[in-house]
Design a protein around this nucleic acid. Structure first.
Lengths: 222, 222
DNA sequence: CGCTATCGATAAAT
DNA sequence: ATTTATCGATAGCG
């Protein structure tokens, strides 16, 4: 913003807001503006190649999508969860995803069909390639049980910690209240998602995050 | 046409073919209509009480939401999954939910840091109110371990079963470059979910589980 | 440097 | 006609 910013870029009239005044100001300037933009344009629904533009579009449309989802949720009292991965593997989620995943998976009531571990129809689905925690419990050697238990516990701890970590709110001013279907915390977080500005930190390709919550920030609040 | 596919689930909405309303509407036409519609109206975002209207709204907006999601997906090459439960517990999903849930859950790498301690800011982190599977493993009495293990195992089985039951949506496992389309199977699944109401039997309530089990298939190629 | 907020203008939806 | 969702461009914030 150093170069060329102050010096009025091209077509923008100087009636533009002064960067110095970041406070919300009434744009009283109802004056004649020399047509600065081309307005909303029609775009084809196809992969956006330009990296930059795609990024911006992703951000904007995702916001729009989440907003819609929130509205639908409120209007109809429906539970909605959205999971989104950008191309850079960054995750963005909306709603109480964890709960919904749970319900989703439970569409089929539990019945103890005794098809054991490697039953996958696609073949070659032995335990190889599975994470330790997704392996059948029986496959854990008795002597490793102790460690296994510890690990499971740690896993749970991490999840809970993550969930509770997101206790920092950002003052959701004038947002409607969610029906009691959605937990307050979730709603707050969703709001963060909606207006969120802070979202980084957990990125990369691991350094994970959540489970049941749509949050963005990762600030551990110390 | 290829983008037609991309352009969303589309097609399901609107059978609106009002002869009066031509598609092309230029603002130049100053024709005074005696009394057409009141145009788009603003509605308050609050729970719709009237059962009927809410149902309709749910249907319409869900379509709209899915459409948006599809567009976003195509435009930005992002993976998107939406899970929706209506008040009547009917499920509607969009996208390759299975894969996304998998990725979502996998986003939490297991770190064997056993940071214990009830550091939960909000307090009340006792085991009460937790489902059996989310309780600390240590809290399981030794004599119950056997059963616990069985349960965990059954859990995993069910998840796997569930996943494969809901169809072959593992197409987009790690779709490389995003062609402007979502996997066919996924679309089919989405559409099925959209129109087919064959989602019954998932009753379920209570006991949820979800976190530690990624399930889902392995790499497509073998 | 990458992602989000804002703005003017306009396409889209109702 | 009126409200909403983007678009392109850019300022702002981490």
């Amino acid at each position: 913003m150093e170069d060329g910013e102050a010096s009025t870029i091209t077509c923008l009239p100087t009636t533009k807001q002064n960067p110095n005044l970041l406070v919300n100001q009434k744009k009283e300037s109802k004056e004649q503006k020399p047509k600065t933009t081309k307005g909303r344009q029609k775009i084809e629904i196809k992969r956006i190649t330009e990296e930059n533009r795609r990024q911006v579009t992703f951000s904007k449309r995702r916001s729009g999508l989440f907003k819609k989802a929130a509205e639908l949720s409120v209007l109809c009292g429906a539970q909605i969860g959205i999971i989104t991965f950008s191309r850079s593997e960054r995750i963005y989620s909306f709603g109480n995803v964890g709960t919904l995943i749970d319900k989703y998976l439970r569409k089929t009531p539990v019945m103890l069909r005794s098809n054991r571990g490697g039953d996958v129809p696609t073949g070659e689905e032995n335990n190889d390639g599975l994470m330790w925690w997704e392996r059948a419990v029986e496959s854990v050697p008795e002597e490793d049980m102790e460690e296994y238990k510890k690990a499971l516990s740690a896993l749970r701890e991490n999840l809970l910690t993550r969930i509770y970590q997101m206790g920092n709110d950002r003052t959701a001013e004038n947002l409607p209240a969610f029906p009691n279907d959605m937990a307050m915390a979730d709603w707050k977080l969703t709001n963060e998602n909606l207006m969120a500005r802070n979202n980084r930190g957990y990125v990369g390709n691991d350094a994970g995050l959540d489970f049941g919550v749509p949050f963005m920030s990762q600030k551990p609040r110390q």
